[in-house]
Amino acid sequence: MNILAIIFMSAGLFFLVVAAIGVVRLPDVFSRSHAVSLTDSLGAFLMLIGVAFHEGLDTNTLKILVVLVLLYILNPVIAHATIRAALRSGLKPWKKENL
C-alpha cells in the first residue's frame, strides 16, 4: 500500500515540477497556462491517488474522490476564463517569428 502511495506521489511530483519549470520557461500567458493545466490534470490527480492509497480505504478516500471530480470540472473553467480574458483584453499570443 505504501509503495503504491510513494510511486503515485513521485509521479505526481514529477509533473508538478515540470509544470513549475514550464511556467518559468514559457514566454507568455497563453503558453504558461498550458503548463498550469499540466499541474491540474495529471500532477494533482496522481498526488491525490497517492494520498488515497496512503490513507487506506475509508471515508477520507471518498472525500478525495469528490475533490478529484470537482478538480476535473472546475479546472478547465478557470483555465478557459483566464485565456478568454487575456484574448479579449487584446493580448497578442507570442509567435515564433517574433524572435
Partner: peptide, 26 residues
C-alpha cells in the same frame, strides 16, 4: 468539447461562440 480540449494539456479553448471554437495550441 470545450472542457475536454482545455483538460488536455497543450490545447486550451480560448473563445466559444455557439459552435465555433477558437483554440490555443502550444
Amino acid at each position: 468539447l470545450g472542457n475536454s480540449i482545455t483538460l488536455t494539456p497543450g490545447t486550451i479553448t480560448a473563445e466559444v461562440d455557439r459552435n465555433n471554437l477558437i483554440v490555443h495550441a502550444i
